[in-house]
Design a protein around this nucleic acid. Structure first.
Lengths: 111, 111
DNA sequence: TTCAATAGTTCGATAATCTTGAACTAACGA
DNA sequence: TCGTTAGTTCAAGATTATCGAACTATTGAA
C-alpha cells in the first residue's frame, strides 16, 4: 500500500503519546540521534544496526504518530527530523529535559 | 507471600524505567496526585476509583520498581510518597518538566 | 480471643501489544 | 528492463497488561 506519511497536527499531540513513544529505549535513542544532528536523518542511520527493518519501521511509525518526528521521502530513503519547535511550543522544556537526562545518564555511565 | 516493599537504591534507577513508568496514563495520574499532595498518600486515594485493586497494585509495583515512589505500611493501609529529592539529584528537572507538561495539557483542555 | 471489616497483594487466565521474517513497493542507476 | 537500496505491510509467535478470585496483614469491636 505505502500511503504517504501522516503527521498529526500539533494540537492533537498528547503528552501520553510522547511519553509512551520515548519510554522505549530504542525510540529514545532514535530521537537522541535525530535531535543531535543538524540535518534530517534517514531511518537506518537513526536506528540500531542489528534490528529487523520491520521493527525499525514500526518504531518510526510510533514516533510519527506521537508527533515527535516528521518524515519525508527523499529519493530512495526517508528522512526524519524532530518537530522540536512545535513540541516546544506546546510542552516547553519537556523534550530538552528528557534528552538532558539521557545525556547525564551516559555521562555518569562512562565515568 | 507479601514480602516487604523493595525500593531500588537511587544509583540503580534508570531513565528508561522512569519514562516507562510514566508513559502509562494511569501511572502518570497517580504520580501527579502523590506529587501534588503535601503528605504521603495511600494507594486507593492515589489511583482511579473504578480500577480493579489488583491492577492498582500492579501499577504501584511498577512505580516502586522504577524508583519513583517509596511505599510504607501504616496500619491497615500503604502510604506512598514521591522520591523527588533523590530523583531530582540524579535527573535534575526531569520530573518537574513532565508534571508541568501534564498541568499545561490540563489547562489547555479546560479552556 | 475470636470475628468481621478494610486495604493491598498474589495468582491464573484471557486480552492486548511487541518483534520478527517474508513478501512487497517505490525510487534510482546502469 | 533489471538489479539494488531503503522502507513498508502482513501474519504469527512471544511478551506484557487487565481482571476476578483467593489470600494476607492490620485494626477494632464483641
Amino acid at each position: 500500500m505505502q500511503r504517504p506519511f501522516v503527521h498529526p497536527p500539533i494540537e492533537t499531540v498528547t503528552l501520553e503519546g510522547i511519553l509512551y513513544a520515548l519510554a522505549d529505549p530504542v525510540r529514545l535513542e532514535i530521537i537522541r540521534r535525530i535531535g543531535a544532528g543538524t540535518c534530517a536523518m534517514n531511518c537506518s542511520a537513526a536506528a540500531p544496526e542489528k534490528m529487523a527493518k520491520s521493527t525499525q519501521s514500526h518504531h518510526f511509525q510510533i514516533l510519527r504518530e506521537a508527533g515527535l518526528i516528521r518524515s519525508e521521502r527523499r529519493g530512495v530513503e526517508v528522512i526524519n527530523q524532530l518537530r522540536c519547535d512545535e513540541i516546544g511550543q506546546k510542552f516547553p522544556g519537556l523534550i530538552p529535559a528528557i534528552l538532558k537526562a539521557a545525556d547525564e545518564r551516559d555521562a555518569c555511565r562512562s565515568t
